[in-house]
Simulated scan of single mutants.
Amino acid sequence: MPVKGPLRTLIGTATLTLALSALVLTEPAYAAKPVGSDKGASTEQTGGSNDTGIYAAARITYSGSVTKDGSTGNVKSTDINWTPPPCWYAPYLGAKDFKEKMSKDIERQTNAPGMGGHAGAALSELQRHYEDGYGWAGSPGYEDYNVEKDGEGMFWAGVENPDEPDALKRSSCTDLPFWVDNGEAPPPRYEEAITPEMLAALAYQHMQLPDTEVSLAPEATTKVNLPTWAWLDRAVFDEVRATAALNVPGFALQATTTAKPVSLGLEPGTPDAETHPASGECTINADGSIGEPYAKGKADETPPCGITYLRSSGDGTYDLRATITWEIEWTGTGGAGGDLPDGTFGNEQAVTVQEIQAVNR
C-alpha cells in the first residue's frame, strides 16, 4: 500500500533516505570482448551510506559480460515499450540495525527546527508504527521494531534503479519498510518486490555485447555496381551471458540472461544501394556464421549477404551500419525462466565507393 497522508509528507520532508543502490561488478567473463571492457579488471561502485554509517544489505552483484563501471550496457531492446524495473523492494536491514537507524533518524528529525504540524504528526505515527504496533489496513504495526525476531528475517525497503532516467518512476516505490521472515515471500500487495525476472531485466540492462564489424570483400573500397560481400565468422561472436544476483541472510535470488545472435542487418548509408537479400536482414547459418566469405571467381555472383552500391561516394565515404539482432532468454532461481525482448547492437564502418574507370584506345 503506497504511503499516504502524514506519512507521505514525512517521506518528502524528513528525508529518511535509504542508501540501497549499491552495485558491485565482478571480473567480466565473456565469449567475445565487450566494447570498453578490459579482461581482468574489476570495479566496485557503492551508493554510499547515510549519516549512521549503515550500508544497505541488498547489494546486487553483476557478473559475466557486463560493464565494469556500473553503467548500462550497449544492448538496446527492440521493444520500445519494454524497460527494466525503475525501482523495486528488497531486503534492507535486520531488526536491530533497522531500529538503530530509524530511532536516530526519528530523534534527529523530531528535534529539527520547524518539525511541527503534519511533519511532526507523521514522525509520531511512524514511531508508533514501528514501536507500538500501530497499523492500518494491509500494514500491521510492529512491537519494538521486531527486535525479538532479529536474525529471523529482515525489513525490506524501496530501491531506486540508478539507471532509470525518469525521476518519478525511479522514486515510485514509496511504501514504508516492511518485515519479511527468512524463507518467506513478501506479501502479494508488494508487486515490485524483487524477483528473478526483475534480476534478469537488470542483467539485460547491464549486458555488454561484442563489436559488430563485418568482413567485406572488396574491403573498405568497392566499385559502383560491383557486389560487395559481407559475412561474420562464427568465431567472431558467440552467445553472451550476464548474471545478476542478490544474496542476504535468509534470502537469495539470481538470474542469468543469455543473448544469442540470430541475424545481421545491413544499412548501406545511402539510398543509392541494393542490399542482399532485399530486406537487408542476413539470417544466421546452420554453422553459426552469417553470410558467406568471398571466394575467387564469384565477383559477378549475387552474395547471400551483402550490398551493391549504385553511386560513387565521391570524395567521401558511406557509413555502412551493421547491426546484429540478439535473441534473449533468461533462467533464474527455482527453475524460473522465459524470454525477454530481442536486443540489438551495431557499429558503423566507412566504405569508399568508386566509379569503374573505362580505358579508351
Rank of each mutant, 00 (worst) to 15 (best):
E184T: 11
G120V: 08
D144W: 02
E125M: 09
E184V: 06
R170K: 15
K149D: 11
S103D: 14
P177R: 03
D181S: 13
P140T: 14
L126F: 07
R170Q: 13
G183C: 13
A167K: 10
A121K: 05
T110K: 15
Q127R: 09
Y145Q: 00
N111P: 00
W179P: 01
P186A: 15
Y134I: 03
W179D: 04
E184A: 15
V159N: 00
E164L: 04
K104N: 11
A185C: 00
V159E: 01
T174A: 09
Y134T: 08
K101N: 14
N182I: 08
D132Y: 03
G183R: 13
K149A: 09
E152L: 15
K99I: 08
N146E: 11
E131K: 13
D105A: 13
R170Y: 07
L176K: 00
L126C: 04
G114E: 08
A157R: 04
A137V: 09
C173R: 01
E160G: 06
W179I: 05
D175C: 12
V180L: 11
D132F: 02
A137Y: 09
N182G: 10
M115L: 04
D105N: 13
A185I: 00
H118Y: 05
S124R: 04
M154D: 04
Q109G: 04
G138D: 08
C173N: 08
W136H: 13
T174V: 12
G151V: 09
A185W: 00
P186S: 15
E160H: 07
A157G: 15
W179L: 05
G141I: 03
P177I: 01
P162S: 10
I106V: 14
F178H: 02
E131G: 00
G151P: 07
S171R: 13
E184Y: 09
E164A: 12
P177L: 05
G141K: 12
S103V: 09
W156D: 05
K101W: 15
G133N: 12
E143F: 08
E143V: 10
G151Q: 09
N161K: 06
M115F: 12
K101L: 15
F98G: 03
A167W: 04
M102Q: 05
G158M: 09
D166L: 02
D166E: 05
A122Q: 00
L168Q: 12
Q109M: 13
E143G: 07
M102I: 10
S172Y: 05
E100K: 15
D163C: 03
K99E: 14
S124Y: 03
G158C: 06
T174R: 10
G138Y: 05
C173A: 14
E148Y: 08
Y142K: 00
I106H: 02
I106M: 03
Q127T: 06
M115R: 13
Q109H: 06
G117V: 04
D175Q: 15
W179H: 03
K99R: 15
D132R: 05
P186I: 11
P113F: 12
M154R: 10
K149W: 07
E184F: 07
D163R: 02
A119M: 08
D166R: 03
M115Q: 11
Y130A: 05
D132N: 08
K169L: 15
T110Y: 07
M102P: 00
G120W: 06
K149R: 12
G133C: 12
S171F: 10
D132H: 04
